[in-house]
Design a protein around this nucleic acid. Structure first.
Length: 275
DNA sequence: AATCGTACCAACCGCCTACCT
DNA sequence: TAGGTAGGCGGTTGGTACGAT
């Protein structure tokens, strides 16, 4: 019954990693590279589950891990991305170089979710009557948002309403058409901005293909650049408190969210086609 | 000084998708 | 096409640190 465990747990070490185990794992990966996690413990001489080795390496031992306090910039980006993506920690982490999904998840659960909820309670009383009720619970840091919860499926295209995109382009000079030509991720204040690549629209939905963009999630890229660059605090109904996201809710952005849902906004990070 | 409660975070677990045969 | 495996993800748990009483 049920799934077979990823590995035999008998005789395996569990719990906190020792310095020696860390050294063995680090040395092994430096010598042989990442991957083949299931066989790694045996070959490296570790009494650990392969998954555990992978997690330890990714979340702690990797040389490019940035440890220490989350900066204000990072915190702001996490809040914005969470508002847009929900609990898609790996995607959020992908925009924060050196940070792991686990770290961001923990930081959110221990710091930001409370702050967001507190602020929400403070503001809900006064503003609730004006809010549209198209809200979805996003789980642990449960608050309402327009995030579309989906399964984590890979997808190559996103459809954005052309009129709204044009509107956006007018508002901000640095938008899709320019960034689509860039191939290197941009960093601002140490934060990785997404890159959007040129797309061909062949075979795309004729209804929505006039503004179809490809993006490659495998490279950590997606084409929500406009949303990220814009003040997309407005994408959802709530601003997240204090100075982080204080712009007022506008009808325009609510319309944008409506459009995304209406036309079948398809994205691996925001949602799959709404049927 | 001892106890209790809370916060934090590393690690684990189960499920899912991608990939390979 | 189907089945099996590996890797990845998000939710949850448990140990530890720390402050309050």
């Amino acid at each position: 019954m049920g799934r077979s465990p990823c590995c035999s747990k008998e005789g395996l070490n569990r719990g906190a990693w020792t310095v020696l185990e860390d050294k063995i794992l680090t040395d092994y990966i430096k010598q042989h590279g990442e991957g083949r996690w299931r066989n790694l413990p045996k070959r490296a001489g570790l009494k650990r589950c392969g998954k555990s080795c992978r997690l330890r390496w990714l979340n702690y031992l990797r040389p490019d891990i940035k440890r220490g306090n989350i900066s204000v910039d990072e915190e702001e980006l996490i809040i914005k991305l969470h508002k847009l993506l929900g609990n898609r920690w790996s995607l959020i982490a992908g925009r924060l170089p050196g940070r792991t999904d686990n770290e961001i998840k923990n930081y959110w659960n221990t710091n930001l979710s409370k702050r967001v909820n507190d602020h929400r309670q403070n503001t809900a009383a006064g503003a609730s009557k004006n809010l549209k009720s198209k809200q979805v619970s996003t789980g642990n840091g449960s608050f309402s948002t327009n995030v579309v919860r989906t399964r984590a499926t890979r997808c190559s295209q996103v459809f954005i309403n052309p009129d709204l995109s044009d509107m956006n382009r007018e508002a901000k000079p640095s938008t899709l058409s320019e960034n689509r030509t860039s191939s290197e991720p941009k960093q601002i204040n140490g934060l990785l901005l997404p890159v959007v690549s040129e797309s061909d629209n062949e075979g795309a939905d004729p209804v929505s293909s006039d503004f179809t963009l490809d993006f490659d999630m495998g490279e950590g890229e997606f084409c929500l650049l406009d949303l990220l660059n814009s003040d997309f605090c407005d994408v959802g109904e709530l601003d997240y408190g204090n100075a982080l996201c204080s712009s007022p809710l506008s009808d325009q952005t609510l319309d944008f969210s409506d459009e995304m849902l209406k036309c079948g906004f398809e994205s691996p990070v925001v949602g799959s086609i709404i049927s």
